[in-house]
Design a protein around this nucleic acid. Structure first.
Lengths: 204, 204, 204, 204
DNA sequence: CATGAATGAGATTTCATTCAT
DNA sequence: AATGAATGAAATCTCATTCAT
């Protein structure tokens, strides 16, 4: 009888929004943005087509919401790292391990962002959002390599990032979900590159 | 006024086909496959919509033709390399230089292939085609690193390939056509990695 | 905290109804009936969409209610006139002055009715309502001109009414709310037409 | 076998375009713009929905095309008048007769324009177009009344135009297509107004 | 009495493909 | 071999209306 409270409405909204975004991410990542229809998303999210437009002004808007969320998450990687160890090699190790872990479990986000990054038209709308995140990650990496004593930290940071993304790209391009991509081997090999910069004190 | 010979007809056909494929590649790479219409391609290729279907049975068919051509070209990279030098370091050098050269001038092909590779649905149709090419390149690289004496040649080959593709990916994702991506610096740094394996004595 | 009396409830109901109708009139007049959504009206009336259906069975019903109200008001123009003066010229004067006054302050009603009158489909539902009002006004005017001694009172009444509505139509069509429509001048000129029929001697 | 010539294509285009515009005008005038769907128009024009967009970029564009055509026609009313007679009273007579003739046969155009003129939102897009036409007609009328020797020619022109449009408005609002609107009577009465200004030479 | 989430029918628009010439 | 008009299916989007709370 009594109407729902604004809080209840807000919760319902959040749930529906989240479900839609989740399914949309899934589908966009698998099929691409332009190859995924609102109908598909609605069906996947178990929601009527019409409702989609209650939450997102347009398909473009939905995409933007997803990307924005993606970027706003994972904000504080470096902070987490710093709180665990101050040794730069160990931090690299953690980054690599973390990234490879992520890649195995949940590659949707990376895939979507990468696909978008390759489409100029879409990029223009997103570039502001993406630029920031990329830049921050890069700067963190540069500082890391500086502290490790690598000769050309900036170039190394670029190379490091490129290698990681390149691995994911190949992993994803190899058949259905990277079967027979030698992920572990590659990971080990990548880390070995930076072993020379391991801090001499207290190591194996 | 005299009727054209069958050969002339055939040549005209080939020219039209080529122009269509070229413009389609351009557009697909810039806007994505699903976001590019037949009309756009026809206009860009200065050809009527109807004529498109004289050359390609469907939009999908056009895409496949482009990808197939892409793959069939550049077939013989290693052969060219081998004919120039037998020193593996120099060959790596040439590969890297060549790739970085290509990236600056004509990235369309790489971009299109990569975009496609990320879309499962499209991939399925193409995977046969792509797998071959990737595999062959990989094997070549493994042999190269073996000859260089790198500890884990297979992993190194994977890393090497990933790094190259990662660089291109980042280059493309950085603003309009990679302005302010430090391509030269990165190239130098990448090559330095393999300098330790330079054969000091000049062999061949 | 004490429960409201039924009368209070009824009053609140009436207020809400009135506010909705007012805002709807505003929007319908500005944007047209089919171009105005229930959501817009609800927002403008500061009421939930659902509640709208508590007061009006449908959008059509809301429109009908507005038109009906419009018609039921202003019922007794002639009565008012008669009570003030019996001189027909003065009555014409009052009608004209009144109409021109109305036009400057609140043209919404006239506009809405006119827009509706031009749409056959809508008209059919409303025509019963509108016919009456028009007819009564017309008859009043005919009698007026008869008493003034105009040669063809019926035709004159038609002309008079047409001129008034035509003026309003032009006034509304001239830029934003009739800026630079010479309303005063036109009003004066219109009245001059009937000056010959002014009773020089004060009659009745 | 041989392709159609550009001229043939152009002719086909013009025919289809014309048919679509004609039917759209009919429907817009009867039902209103926002209350007429592209599907309805397509069906009426015996054409697929898709084809509509071959000729008009949008529904709005279609409307604009119709209005523009409407305005560009009937350009030279005054020129025609001048070529027939120089007597201003006779010209007025001709205008009135012509307008009343038009109103009986083909009121669609007037109706559509009038409906649009009442919708602010639509008007904004069209106002440039409409303003011109209105202004020109008005100026012509003012000059006419000047030559007739009417006391306040400007006000008279406004009144005259308003009366004409008002008559049409009432005619249209009276049941299905103005049955029982005394059009002839009103016409006669309107003309009588200007008889005093008939040129004294050679009259009845 | 009141809310706004949710629906579904239908509107506008797009586009690969066909076809008469 | 070549054209672009024409189609139809499907995509995006809108909105009056219903309903659980």
């Amino acid at each position: 009888m009594s109407p729902r409270t604004p809080e209840q409405f807000e919760e319902i909204r959040q749930q529906s929004r989240a479900r839609i975004m989740e399914e949309a991410l899934e589908l966009f990542a698998r099929q691409g943005f332009h190859n995924t229809s609102i109908s598909q998303i609605a069906k996947a999210a178990n929601v009527s087509k019409g409702l989609m437009y209650n939450y997102f002004a347009s398909k473009d808007d939905l995409l933007e919401a997803i990307v924005r969320q993606e970027i706003e998450q994972g904000e504080d990687l470096m902070e987490i790292l710093s709180s665990t160890t101050h040794d730069p090699y160990e931090q690299i190790q953690m980054i690599v391990t973390g990234a490879f872990q992520m890649v195995k479990t949940d590659l949707k986000h990376w895939k979507l962002i990468t696909m978008l990054a390759l489409q100029e038209e879409i990029m223009q709308r997103m570039s502001e959002l993406l630029r920031q995140k990329t830049e921050r990650g890069l700067e963190d990496a540069i500082r890391l390599f500086e502290r490790m004593g690598v000769p050309d930290p900036k170039a190394e940071a670029y190379l490091f990032g490129a290698t990681l993304d390149g691995i994911f790209l190949h992993f994803l391009s190899t058949g259905p979900m990277g079967v027979d991509y030698p992920l572990e081997q590659v990971q080990r090999s990548l880390l070995q590159r930076y072993e020379p910069y391991k801090t001499t004190t207290n190591e194996d």
